[in-house]
Design a protein around this nucleic acid. Structure first.
Lengths: 212, 212
DNA sequence: TAGATTGTTAATCGATTAACAATC
DNA sequence: TAGATTGTTAATCGATTAACAATC
């Protein structure tokens, strides 16, 4: 069994799963068949203890005295992350950041399909990015009614982010990938990614360094 | 005193500072002069206890029975984050993501100045983005010798990210803002921001939701 | 079997929450 | 003074690290 339903997975563990997935994928691509927690943790910059503790929240993937079979573990983690099924994503807000997200080459590897792009700027509407044509945001409710969308990516200016999210929630979207620096009112799971906050954290750490 | 040197600030606190800064800035822009920990925490989605605990790692900014003076607290946090001085940034890798970062309008508010852009693609070299012309990456060592740069932003393909970072480190850059999904070998502080990892975390949470 | 490495329990460490005396 | 809200200590909770028996 991959996931003992009912058991609470620690948030820290969850945020490390994508990292494990990336490293295992790389090992698998290189044809490496087995790896120990010590070796894998070493590459990732973690500890064997933490790695085993994390994995054991989901099940028993290793073999005593041997380590972990790479391909099997990768497949297990893929399934835990939900990579075994294709998810459809739309993006609202096709400024520079929206463009960059839409052009992100690695969606395919993660089984994400770009289903639609929206903006309000007449100059942008009609433009094709990654084989998808930008539509007017007014079309979104109708589009969502006709298509089951899993992920709604928000890269609008902060002022209109909430409105976009409300529309998405009503339209049956299952989760929000938010790049706008605002707290969103929604019952959906939101994954927040804010460039400014990340940069400020770096700024702080640079400052501490200089103090010494 | 703003920062009792020697005291260790918790990493979780540090990652919340930029959020506090954003909300305080907003309050200040609205002309709000004082705020209690309860009110501010409510807006942010935190708790009064945590907010006070966080702030008290740096000093005493509040007034008993009154709350926090917004403008003063904002200015204190700005200084803690190092926003009182201008920092120069360069970007290496002017693909879609590099373009989006270079066009990010909020650098100014954070006192960040875009000093140079680098790429290796001849088609991109010479292009002007946010008033800065893209140069060939080969020019970087010379540029760094002639200019004191604080932040090196890496938005190259993963294969060449390490090389870029090594060049930056030798050139006297103080911190790395990394968008490439690789573990970097450097003694500099690195702030990592990986779109793919963030998206996978959302994917996992969507999956958990559906299970219920 | 001997060696290696897991799964898991126990010990430590750190972060959050609760409570309240101090004080504006 | 009375009311409000801080700064700070103590209690709780969660996450990481260490250790080792189980076992391939």
């Amino acid at each position: 069994m991959l996931d003992e339903s009912g058991s609470k997975i620690s948030p820290r563990t969850i945020s490390r799963l994508p990292v494990y997935w990336r490293y295992l994928k790389e090992l698998d691509d290189f044809g490496i068949e087995r790896i120990s927690s010590r070796e894998l943790a070493g590459r990732i910059g973690s500890t064997p203890s933490q790695l085993r503790q994390d994995l054991n929240q989901f099940g028993h993937f290793g073999q005593h005295g041997y380590g972990y079979p790479v391909e099997e573990l990768l497949s297990s983690i893929s399934q835990i992350l939900g990579l075994n099924r294709t998810r459809k994503m739309i993006i609202v807000g096709m400024g520079n950041l929206g463009m960059a997200i839409a052009s992100y080459e690695n969606f395919g590897r993660r089984n994400i399909k770009l289903a639609a792009l929206f903006d309000v700027d007449p100059e942008r509407i009609g433009t094709v990015v990654s084989d998808v044509q930008i539509q007017h945001a007014d079309e979104m409710p109708k589009f969502l009614e006709e298509n089951q969308i899993d992920i709604g990516c928000v890269s609008t200016p902060p002022e209109v982010a909430q409105e976009a999210v409300t529309t998405m929630e009503h339209g049956g979207v299952l989760g929000i990938w938010n790049f706008a620096p605002v707290k969103l009112q929604t019952k959906l799971p939101v994954e927040h990614l804010h460039l400014g906050d990340s940069l400020l954290e770096l700024l702080y750490r640079i400052g501490r360094r200089e103090d010494k």
